[in-house]
Design a protein around this nucleic acid. Structure first.
Lengths: 332, 332
DNA sequence: GCGGCGCGTTTTATCGATATAGTCTGCGAA
DNA sequence: TTCGCAGACTATATCGATAAAACGCGCCGC
């Protein structure tokens, strides 16, 4: 490996002179500078970032830690990346498999030291576990779980989004709407907050809330959603609308409905949540709650930037507004 | 920040003793070890990985560098992650926006030093640019472009996959099959290799090859694909089948066909390439060439592992076999 | 003629961990 | 009593870069 001192020897100067030439900190005389640059070129020297990071105590890198790389998080990550790069920092992604253990490791002091800041998409950790995190570096939390108050946090207006989608289907005539992928839990988390919105829409419309229509699913995959909806259909529970807790679930539902020859939206209306890119392309177009990925990304990166710049106000808890994107899976 | 020497002072020992306790290199006496562990606990010490990396010249981290985080690459990344972790290393993702400049920076000596090895999914760099890369660390290339011979490389059987898909549609009755997203270029790259397979299938079946049916698209997004297919339909060019160069393109095609009320597969058969997860859920199910993500991931990680372990045989060029997954978008 | 100043460059210390060589203590054998 | 030696622990050098201080030299002004 070519080091700065190799360059220094080649150019007949001290390492500091090389450093000064390359970083333009202190001025270096013309001829000397030329010799240094020639030596750099000849040897193919490039700075060792690890050493620089150690010395500088800074890495100019931000980590985005997500449960998995595909679907929702991939799309969010692609929104976040340009914003971080616009600040002159690098973005790297790490993955936790949604396992609490991996998430804890990812925000361990040791790993945090590799980055100037971390965006953590919380999937597995509960508030109690999170409160044990030693925040040696700025962390901004993303995601729909409850988190300790001292963390900056960006979440979505889950209840409102679910309410919008459900109310829309009620207005368009659905009376028996499944809450697919939702749960009856009390803890504030994605699946229960969205179920609350589903409930609210029913109450607002003067309709009864039937808990049989809350159908949890074991894993948040299209595959499981498809199988679960098949079970519901087989059970004979009548329904004429589906609010899917996520678009990934909605996608599984679309498949299951097609498997059974149920027409969307004529026989069953369908709405999802997340407005994934794919949702506008799957015929007849999936109506979905748009979380405004770009806005979420801006909030999150903005908060993190403020902390990295030394800002130390009270923690902010942003609830990002959502809107409904109406497509062909609901009636007009 | 709590350092090892803070712990050493607290425990009344030298830093090396702390190091020895934590890394279990040299044996440390019972009582001393207890004091050290107590001090570590009390101060909340964790090792500084940057310092360790500098000293050790190793980071136990592999980078996967991709054009973008979502769709295809997100799915591949989720396959690669567990394999890298199984080797006791971390995986991080970086993104290049498919820009040649970013790709060059990503494999600059400086950035490579942060990792023990790199998996680079080549999108923007041509062989000439790649050959200028100073490979200070093991690199394995992924992707469908031609690359210099001295790089390990994993690619797909593009021509064969396209041939399979096209032949399948011909066999099922299509006679005028668009090659959507393919190109007439000569350079070996994804879009032209897949076009070759489309051609071969025609020749094999004794059908003429009509270049008007090769329809390139400006950007590889579902959105562009949808718009482009609308243009084709508007142009009046008759077709009864579509081979989409990627599933993302196929998804746009599905949307455009639905927009026009064209029934799949009755009026138009459709096949894609990549077998994205979504393809099995979009009604009626998109027939797609399965690149065996898992196998590709294993090859790539295996090659990289060999290099990182010091293996120095000749570069390997793996062409990963593909197979056709038949779904409802083609006739049975 | 000498202090002072500015410029260009080098010296030294440092970031935090770790490999290696060295030191100290105590115990057993000659 | 002395030497040897093993075991436990410490001192030092090192990874590669950079911040801060020091240095040498020429030139200016009084």
């Amino acid at each position: 490996m070519v080091t700065m001192s190799d360059v220094a020897r080649e150019a007949g100067v001290s390492v500091m002179t090389v450093s000064n030439v390359l970083n333009e900190r202190l001025p270096v005389g013309g001829p000397t500078r030329e010799r240094v640059l020639a030596a750099v070129e000849a040897l193919g020297y490039e700075v060792n970032l690890t050493a620089r990071h150690l010395r500088a105590g800074r890495t100019d890198t931000v980590a985005l830690i997500v449960p998995s790389f595909h679907d929702y998080f991939g799309e969010v990550a692609d929104e976040i990346a340009p914003l971080v790069e616009a600040q002159g920092r690098h973005l790297v992604l790490e993955r936790t498999s949604a396992s609490p253990q991996y998430e804890m490791e990812a925000v361990s002091v040791a790993r945090l030291q590799l980055y100037d800041g971390v965006l953590l998409s919380v999937a597995g950790l509960d508030p109690e576990q999170l409160s044990r995190v030693r925040t040696s570096k700025p962390i901004v939390l993303l995601g729909e779980r409850d988190v300790p108050a001292h963390f900056d946090h960006v979440r979505l207006a889950n209840e409102e989004g679910a309410r919008l989608a459900t109310a829309h289907m009620i207005e368009r005539g659905s009376r028996r709407i499944l809450a697919l992928g939702c749960t009856l839990d009390r803890a504030h988390m994605m699946t229960s907050d969205r179920r609350l919105g589903w409930e609210t829409a029913h109450r607002d419309a003067g309709l009864p809330v039937d808990e049989r229509y809350v159908v949890p699913i074991a894993t948040y995959s299209s595959h499981t959603a498809r199988a679960t909806l098949h079970d519901v259909i087989a059970s004979g529970l009548p329904f004429d609308g589906i609010f899917a807790a996520t678009d990934v679930i909605a996608l599984g539902a679309v498949a299951a409905l097609a498997d059974r020859g149920l027409r969307v939206p004529d026989e069953v209306q369908l709405a999802g949540f997340d407005n994934l890119e794919v949702s506008s392309f799957v015929p007849p177009g999936i109506t979905s709650v748009d979380p405004n990925h770009h806005g979420v990304a801006q909030h999150a990166v903005g908060l993190l930037h403020r902390r990295m710049a030394g800002g130390d106000g009270p923690a902010e808890h942003v609830v990002a507004p959502v809107s409904l994107v109406v497509r062909g899976s609901t009636r007009r």
